[in-house]
Design a protein around this nucleic acid. Structure first.
Length: 1050
RNA sequence: GCUGGAGUGGCGGAAUUGGUAUACGCGCAUGGCUUAGGACCAUGUUCCCGCAAGGGAUUGAGAGUUCAAGUCUCUCCUCCAGCACCA
């Protein structure tokens, strides 16, 4: 009986597909399990051997989960927008859509050939308009919430690819893709404000189960640093220089200040005799490529400005220098030079002969002599030469000096991040068009803001006059009515005052309500039933406990009010949901120390309302100014960019003649004048479309959500399906109310495996999207992925990375053709530890092939006679193997799982061959139940062959192996085998006899042998006796079930 | 430079809380089958001494703790990954 992998693998792939056994069922009562792999980019090269490593691993887990009774979602799709396809299109002159279609067909064929248990009915393609309609829609949500903005900035420009790159895509100053050195270019770019989520992204890492390396990399990337901005007054000028530092404790050692060449008034403050030099230096620095500036160990350069500033701490004069080792975008773009304790400042001071002062001595008693600088990262030390800090530990000194500087008004504590906002524009063709149009008329239009004060308030109270003035400065038209009888408010009177104003508001306008004014804003929205732009409710009075009217009317505040007014203002009639549907963005702001609006009442706010907490002593916000709120409201200021209404989505990519990007940095879409010219969806006037497209990270930032509801054409996904597949504990708390205090929501994709190369970019971006969508109420969990693991790279046989240029690429097609999919799958799982890089070895495949071949051959040796005497040892081995395989799969230790199955197979095989003489009476000794267990355990690894063997064992139409009870269904639908804990333990063990810790003999003994019995065995042992004979026995150590150790003197 | 991780046969690699180092596979050797080769089967295979019995050494190097260390502690070396003129 020969195993023909070509026919058999095809046969089962067809049967699985026809019976739909891998289709995930929405809302099934069985527990759900969402297994995810990174969907491939369908390149022209086809599948790489690296793809099956990750896909097989999750396939094993998915198949095991199904056998364990789970309703499994194991989806697949294609991340099909992006550069390689576009570049290929330019080269060949063919449309990218066509190329993509072909590549996807190839990938699909190759993936199906490997027998992965994907639910193909849910496949998504990011470049498909039915998909990117929702990518565009989601982008608009960012836009409407002020998290997408356009900004002129120096971007990383790859002159070869003619594309702007995100910081994340620049490696060592060169383009990640092609290695060309990156240039700086000024360009208007769409940005996503990921920095606003820096803390949330950091915080979220605490609640997820990611491999440590991934967490560390994300933390590094976000790079949160607590420090202080210290001001230094420039002598003879009204200018101040602000320097960020994390080591203010060393500030008594500051001897100079360095400005980066980008510093705003660097040239301006230079004294006349130095101006020329300074100008030349700044201009030279601008020409220096970013990459060159960042080279480590580069000789410091710089120029003195002639100006000085004062160190407030000791009144000393510090010269102001300019140097390109200070980077414009780090901190404040200026650095205070502490050459005694910073290696770079030290090098600079050395070169320009600036004074070097030592202010910290280490605990190792080092001298004051400085040969090389101590690192910034010094962890302990004692302050000297530092006035009131002397003798303090550096950490205590840091705290004290910060307090002191803040108290004196010389500095302000700040948090700095390395993370910067995400450049979201690409000047390329093959990406999602950004669904915005620019309208000059709407840009000039004044946006209206309605400010509604609260109980006992007026147009003159609180921060309202200040806010009105500030907003007007920014070009808003502000309405701030003083509402009638604010100490004895009557509902209809207030509404009568507000309605005529709000009636004229449109989709671009803003309502801000404080306290009772916040509650009034909600009523206003519900009554008008008209869509407006943004609503901000500051400590809205909607949490007040229901009061008894008869009690209340005795309260002088309510004198003259009626029951209706009372109810409108103080019962819970107002509906958040109803009011919420009339605002594009809606935000609630509160302060934890507000005495009237307790924090814990936030659970009454439905999802969809963004909650902002301004912590600090804000109370109920009785303050003359409120800059935090102003900043928030000002985000809603229209820039003239108008979003396309939903019914105009998707904005599809027009067909273009040429896909070649231009040197001016405009996308090929810019040449489509007919397409660019359009009507403003807001005012109907002339407008032009945005011609930038989105980066290829866009589609992959939310694909795992789309899998939950891939064919929905009404929403990006339905909430109930998200709740089912992405939900965690399923508690109400998680799904329809939010509580800022709660850390864990425990939901998301149950297990996500992917490459280490995606732990910074893709993982961070998609977490950002998901957290944002959670905040605006569109997804049920804060974090998208509950568990994240990573596979190691497959290297070429020579230990190098596989690459076309090296010519060492292994093609999975050829392996499947020659050995079959099962062999490839098992080999990739067996080749080494899953999380480590392993070189490919074509020779080693033979071992796996032999193993599977032997499993196949074993079937023909099964005994027809059911009365086989039991081999207890074999039965125990089966249970042990079951336990080990079950546990190893969970720990992704696939290589050892396969090793124990090989051991079991060898044992089964020897059972059937060892006693040919006794075969007649005993049979082969191979029981079909034991063999079946092996097939079940092996099935997730080698699904095709085991499925075929299973059928031959059970199906009456498959002689001669029909041993059992007829058709019991597919193997992939059998329950996962269980083990008996009793049988996992050994009955007999090899007791190790040691003398002084060295093994001298091994004897077989019952597993539960006692110390005394073991001691008898040990002292009777002849081999051991040789070593302890004639010596004084000092001690005997017994380890139950393992060993006995005789310890002698000397 | 900083932060993680890792160094085990000829090779890929196994070893719960410290408790039989080298599982499993590759390769190799010997034998069987074969005209031959391949495939397959059997046996052996960490290294050194020895015909064998047996003994000794051994988890990057060196020290330490312990009855017992691949595993714990310290010093050093090498490799891999991430970060890096980030103030």
């Amino acid at each position: 009986m020969k195993y023909h992998h070509r026919e058999i693998e095809k046969k089962w792939q067809k049967i699985w597909e026809e019976r739909g056994v891998f289709a995930a069922k929405d809302f099934s009562k069985r527990p759900k399990f969402y297994a995810l792999i990174e969907f491939p980019y369908p390149s022209g090269e086809g599948l790489h051997v690296g793809h099956p490593r990750s896909y097989t691993a999750m396939d094993i887990i998915a198949r095991k989960r199904r056998m364990e009774g789970y309703n499994v979602l194991y989806p697949i799709g294609f991340d099909s927008f992006g550069l390689p396809t576009e570049n290929y299109a330019i080269k060949t002159g063919r449309p990218p859509a066509e190329i993509t279609k072909e590549n996807i067909a190839t990938f699909t064929k190759q993936l199906k050939m490997l027998g992965f248990s994907f639910d193909w009915s849910r496949a998504v393609t990011t470049s498909d308009p039915s998909y990117y309609k929702w990518t565009q829609w989601l982008f608009l949500q960012f836009f409407k919430h002020g998290l997408a903005y356009k900004k002129k900035m120096a971007i990383n420009w790859c002159p070869k690819d003619k594309i702007g790159l995100a910081n994340e895509e620049v490696v060592d100053g060169a383009c990640e893709r092609c290695g060309t050195p990156v240039e700086k270019r000024e360009k208007e770019q769409w940005m996503l404000a990921i920095t606003k989520y820096a803390d949330k992204l950091l915080e979220g890492l605490k609640e997820v189960d990611y491999i440590e390396r991934a967490k560390v990399q994300q933390e590094n990337w976000i790079g949160r640093k607590e420090g202080i901005n210290i001001e230094y007054q420039v002598i003879g000028s009204d200018k101040k220089i602000v320097c960020f530092t994390t080591r203010p404790d060393t500030n008594f050692g500051a001897t100079f200040v360095v400005l980066g060449p980008e510093y705003p008034f660097a040239l301006e403050l230079s004294t006349p005799e130095y101006k020329k030099e300074v100008k030349a230096y700044i201009e030279g620095a601008k020409k220096t490529a970013e990459a060159e500036r960042l080279v480590e160990g580069r000789e410091k350069t710089g120029v003195f400005t002639g100006a000085y500033c004062v160190n407030n701490l000791n009144g000393e004069k510090m010269p102001i220098w300019i140097s390109d080792y200070v980077l414009g975008y780090v901190g404040t773009g200026a650095v205070v030079g502490v050459p005694g304790h910073d290696i770079r400042d030290f090098e600079f001071a050395k070169k320009f002969k600036i004074q070097i002062k030592r202010v910290v001595v280490g605990s190792d008693g080092d001298t004051l002599e400085i040969t090389k600088s101590e690192q910034v990262q010094e962890e302990k030390g004692t302050m000297i030469n530092s006035g009131f800090l002397d003798g303090m530990d550096i950490h205590a000194a840091t705290k004290k000096i910060m307090d002191y500087l803040e108290e004196k008004g010389w500095g302000k504590r700040v948090v700095n991040y390395k993370l910067r906002d995400w450049v979201f524009s690409r000047q390329r063709y093959w990406g999602e068009p950004i669904p915005l149009v620019f309208c000059e008329a709407c840009k000039g239009k004044k946006q209206k803001v309605l400010l509604i004060h609260g109980f006992e308030g007026s147009a003159e109270s609180n921060w309202f006059p200040w806010m009105k003035q500030e907003l007007e400065k920014q070009g808003f038209e502000v309405f701030l009515p003083t509402l009638p009888n604010s100490s004895h408010p009557k509902f209809e009177e207030w509404m009568a005052a507000l309605e005529p104003i709000a009636k004229r508001f449109g989709e671009d306008d803003i309502i801000v309500g404080h306290s009772l004014g916040g509650r009034s804003a909600l009523h206003l929205l519900s009554r008008l039933k008209k869509r407006i732009g943004h609503v901000y409710l500051i400590a809205p009075a909607v949490w007040a406990k229901p009061l008894n009217w008869n009690e209340v009317k005795k309260d002088p505040n309510w004198e003259g009010s009626d029951v209706d007014t009372f109810h409108m203002f103080h019962d819970h009639a107002v509906s958040w949901e109803d009011a919420g549907q009339y605002a594009n963005s809606k935000t609630v702001i509160f302060s934890p120390d507000d005495p009237f609006i307790p924090t814990q009442d936030h659970s009454t706010i439905p999802q969809g309302w963004c909650i902002n907490v301004f912590s600090g002593s804000y109370g109920h916000f009785d303050r003359p100014e409120y800059p935090e709120l102003l900043e928030l409201v000002a985000v809603s200021k229209s820039s003239g960019w108008i979003p396309l209404p939903e019914d105009q989505l998707p904005l599809t990519l027009p067909e273009v003649e040429k896909h070649q990007p231009t040197d001016t940095g405009e996308s090929p879409l810019a040449a489509m004048t007919e397409w660019v010219k359009t009507k403003c969806p807001q005012c109907g006037g002339e407008a032009r479309r945005e011609t930038d497209t989105m980066p290829n990270w866009a589609g992959s930032s939310w694909y795992f959500l789309r899998y939950c509801d891939p064919h929905n054409d009404k929403e990006f996904t339905a909430m109930d399906k998200l709740k089912y597949w992405m939900g965690g504990g399923g508690s109400d708390h998680v799904t329809h109310a939010r509580d800022m205090v709660t850390k864990s929501c425990g939901g998301g994709v149950d297990w996500y495996n992917g490459g280490m190369e995606h732990t910074v970019l893709h993982l961070l971006y998609s977490r950002f999207w998901n957290q944002f969508l959670y905040d605006i109420g569109l997804v049920p969990t804060r974090e998208p992925y509950k568990k994240r693991t990573s596979h190691g790279l497959i290297l070429a046989e020579d230990g190098e990375k596989m690459s076309k240029s090296r010519g060492n690429v292994v093609n999975p097609n050829e392996i499947v053709e020659k050995y079959g999919a099962d062999v490839l799958r098992v080999y990739e799982m067996f080749m080494g530890p899953f999380d480590q890089a392993v070189p490919w070895s074509t020779k080693s495949i033979a071992g796996v092939q032999r193993f599977l071949e032997k499993v196949w051959q074993l079937a023909s040796r099964l005994d027809q006679n059911k009365q086989i005497p039991q081999s207890k040892q074999l039965e125990r081995l089966v249970h042990k193997t079951t336990k080990k395989v079950t546990e190893d799969i969970e720990a992704m230790k696939f290589n050892t799982a396969i090793a124990v199955m090989m051991t079991l197979m060898n044992e089964l095989s020897s059972q059937s061959t060892v006693h040919p003489s006794t075969k007649a009476e005993l049979g082969t000794g191979l029981r079909s139940t034991q063999y079946e267990t092996l097939l079940q355990l092996l099935h997730p690894f080698a699904p095709h062959m085991t499925e075929e063997l299973w059928e031959r064992l059970h199906n009456p139409s498959q002689p001669p192996l029909n041993l059992r009870r007829g058709d019991v269904g597919l193997l992939c639908q059998q329950p996962w085998p269980k083990w008996n804990p009793e049988l996992v333990k050994d009955e007999e063990i090899e007791l190790v006899i040691q003398v002084n810790g060295r093994v001298r003999d091994r004897v077989s003994a019952p597993a539960d042998i006692s110390h005394d019995q073991a001691e008898v065995l040990a002292f009777q042992n002849k081999k051991a006796a040789k070593w302890f004979h004639g010596k004084e026995v000092k001690d005997v150590v017994f380890v139950k079930g393992k060993l006995i150790n005789i310890v002698t003197a000397n």
